[in-house]
Every structure is written in structure tokens, then in C-alpha cells.
Simulated scan of single mutants.
Amino acid sequence: MLHPLSTVVITSYGAAHHDVPQATRPVTVDASLLPQPDAMSRAGQQLGGRSPAARAYVTRSPAGRLVVDQALERIRQRLGPGGQVAVHVRSPHGHYRAPAVAEEIADQLRASGVQVQVIHRHLGRPDPPATH
């Protein structure tokens, strides 16, 4: 059972930016292999994976549900009275998949009474230059 006095800090980011968030023993979630919303279902660069359409597309797929469920289980194992857990959700650029998964995890934790803070490091930022 999730403890209501626990706090979870979820950070979504893009691995291509090469500035991985720092934390001691974070729960890491890889959203890289989840379906990427195509141009028709994207809801603008600023909302990215926070848009309802993009978020549903990513997290309602069978693979998306599995990633979210597995992350929630690992978070539940770490939470205790008054504890804090860092969760790092990554995708290639941090625009759609990682933010969508981070928001879905956050909503489910909040529904269980857990305090959650969500940070999207690379949402709305341009992709870094490709390195060869």
C-alpha cells in the first residue's frame, strides 16, 4: 500500500540531451520503445506528451500500460512513511513518450494519496544536434 505521507519526484528527460537527472537510487523508467505519436496526433511542441491525445496514444497501448504498471510496482516497493522516491523517465528526446508516462504515473500515484512533483526537463526544448 502507498503511504500518503510519501513524496515522489518524477523527472522526464531526453537521453539525447546528455544531462541525466541526478538522484540516489532512482526508479528508472525507459519509455523509448513505446509508440511515438505521429504528426497528426501531436498537439503542439509545448504540450508534447502532456496533451491528452499524445498521452493516451503512448500510455494506452499494451506496451505503455505495461511500462506504467511496472514502474508503479517498483515505486510502491520503495515508498515508506515520510519517504521520498526519485523517478526518472527517459525517452530519446523527452518531448512525448517520457512526459506522457511521467504524467500517467503521477496521476495514478496522486489518486492513491501520494504527493507527487513532476519535472519535464526537455519538453519544448529543441532536439540537440546529432553527433556523428
Score class of each variant (00 low, 15 high):
M1G: 15
L2Y: 11
L2I: 13
L2C: 15
H3V: 10
H3M: 14
H3C: 12
L5P: 04
L5F: 12
L5Q: 13
V8R: 00
V9S: 10
I10A: 04
I10S: 07
T11R: 06
T11D: 11
S12T: 06
Y13E: 02
P21S: 07
T24A: 14
R25P: 06
P26L: 11
P26F: 03
P26C: 10
V27E: 04
T28P: 07
V29N: 06
D30E: 15
L33C: 14
L34S: 01
L34F: 03
P35K: 08
Q36W: 06
Q36S: 10
Q36F: 08
P37E: 01
D38F: 04
D38R: 05
M40T: 11
R42E: 06
R42D: 05
A43N: 11
G48A: 05
G48V: 03
G49Y: 01
R50A: 09
R50T: 12
S51T: 02
P52G: 12
A54D: 09
R55I: 05
R55M: 09
R55K: 13
Y57T: 01
Y57P: 09
V58A: 03
T59C: 15
S61H: 09
P62W: 02
A63K: 15
G64Q: 09
R65G: 13
R65D: 07
L66I: 05
L66A: 14
V67I: 06
V68M: 05
A71L: 09
E73T: 15
E73G: 12
I75F: 07
R76E: 14
R78I: 02
R78L: 07
R78Y: 06
L79S: 04
G80T: 10
P81I: 12
G82K: 07
V85Y: 02
A86G: 10
A86D: 12
V87H: 00
H88R: 05
S91Q: 02
S91N: 06
P92R: 11
G94H: 00
G94Q: 00
H95R: 12
Y96A: 01
R97V: 00
A98P: 00
A100T: 01
A100C: 14
E103R: 06
E103V: 08
E104M: 09
I105Y: 02
I105M: 08
A106H: 07
A106Q: 10
A106F: 09
D107P: 00
D107A: 11
L109G: 00
A111V: 00
A111F: 02
S112K: 05
V114I: 13
V116F: 03
Q117K: 10
R121S: 03
R121P: 02
L123C: 10
G124T: 09
R125N: 09
P126Y: 08
P129C: 06
A130R: 14
A130P: 13
T131V: 15
